[in-house]
Design a protein around this nucleic acid. Structure first.
Lengths: 247, 247
DNA sequence: TGACTTATAGTATTTTTTACTTTAACAATT
DNA sequence: AATTGTTAAAGTAAAAAATACTATAAGTCA
């Protein structure tokens, strides 16, 4: 039967570069942690879980779990997201691995950070299966967090903002049908700035990546706005022709 | 004395989310691998090492090593780069972690990928201490590579190109003093495209991030070009004022 | 000196961005 | 049915940036 310990031992004793080594392989725990972001009433929010066990019992933390033997990193993140939201096919990306020596009080555990964008109205988080509680938090008003999760969130948001500037990922936060003003507000929440309304419209429409649904908002007490849909196929076609999305 | 195995065992038995778990912590080997890029005679090159031991004896591979007990990821990459080049203070960035189940034939080993940009004329790689041989390879003409290193390089280059478009990292590949045509050629090598000479000059000079050294090339058999230096302080000042580098 | 190569400056046209104004559509109220 | 308030959506004009191209200047080499 295959024995990983022995295999790693062999590997180490014939170390790549003939260097002095640790004799016996030093091994690491590995986890994944997910920054789940949603857009709600004009604000960017992150979904956190309250820990029910020590260490950091009672603290809020990123949803995550230890990597399993038969999983690759992507599978592990998918599993965590599914257990949290009940949804598959969520947008998520690995963004950075955190390996500070003392980041986990009980041993050497590396964590691979993912960020994920969801349409938050589709989500009914499942607290029971996970932890004491689950809650959306405004990204500008976070509680004290477990481990190095505050640091991880800062890094993840920074990366998200860079990515959102040059890729059409803002649409992941919106429902299928949306108005141009909703789209504008989403981008304002992501970047923390304000845009001129007519120019925002002009810019996004000139990209030709939205489909006009010829439908109007309902149940609003003002002139209803047109509804649009993000046309992913058109976007991909244009991208292959050299088009560069940019905000 | 602190016992990591026991600590991890405890940690696992009181798993965050009360899920069924593996009983005993499954542990992973962790390594770092570095894509070292340089610019030579109009081409983008990557520095590879030839493996002297199995697995993959005789194959070319990325320079890398197993993470040590008392190192964080950044330290490990720094160490690998120092052992390879003899230089400290090289530009490098973590870009992605690779954790496919079967990526290492002898066990479960995750690797954290870094890419690094160097001024290749400063470097005299040290083959003896490392492996059978060390060599610069044209990124478009790579040999067969060990492990999943071909995949890692593809991903790393993709990330580099994105980053180079919006950050001034191209200068890391050039010597302290360079001509505008050398700068242009470097960017042409990174992106695999050609630029119009007068417009390239205009664009880069209008950014106001170069210092004119009032010096000329020497030992060239044509009109010598002016030498410039990248003014990192000016660049940072402008960046803080909202300036966005872009190619 | 003259031919040749390359750096560098300049110009003119087109395209894009930005700031701002105007008009139209609808809901709610009187 | 007219009025008011709010928002969508179209339009316009000025400024800035990108692009394509031309011309000139400064050096080397024979």
């Amino acid at each position: 039967m295959y024995n990983q310990k022995e295999a790693l031992k062999d590997y180490y004793s014939t170390n790549d570069y003939g260097e002095e080594n640790l004799g016996y392989p030093f091994v690491f725990g590995v986890s994944v942690d997910c920054i789940v972001l949603g857009y709600q009433s004009g604000k960017l929010k992150v979904l956190l879980v309250e820990r029910g066990v020590s260490p950091y019992r009672g603290y809020w933390a990123l949803p995550g779990d230890l990597l399993k033997k038969d999983e690759d990193l992507k599978n592990a993140a998918e599993r965590v997201l599914y257990q949290l939201t009940g949804l598959r096919e969520i947008y998520f990306k690995q963004f950075k691995t955190f390996g500070a020596i003392d980041r986990h009080p009980m041993g050497r555990v590396l964590t691979v950070g993912f960020f994920s964008l969801v349409k938050s109205e589709n989500i009914y988080p499942l607290p029971a299966a996970w932890a004491k509680d689950t809650k959306w938090w405004d990204i500008n008003e976070l509680p004290e967090l477990a481990f190095d999760h505050a640091f991880i969130i800062r890094k993840g948001l920074k990366r998200l903002r860079k990515k959102a500037k040059y890729e059409s990922i803002g649409f992941e936060l919106l429902p299928e049908k949306f108005t141009l003003l909703e789209l504008q507000s989403t981008y304002e929440a992501i970047f923390g700035v304000e845009y001129d309304k007519p120019n925002f419209r002009k810019k996004i429409l000139s990209m030709k990546i939205l489909e006009d649904l010829n439908e109007l908002q309902s149940n609003v007490n003002h002139r209803p706005a047109k509804l649009y849909r993000f046309d992913r196929d058109k976007y991909n076609t244009l991208k292959n022709m050299g088009f560069q999305f940019e905000f």
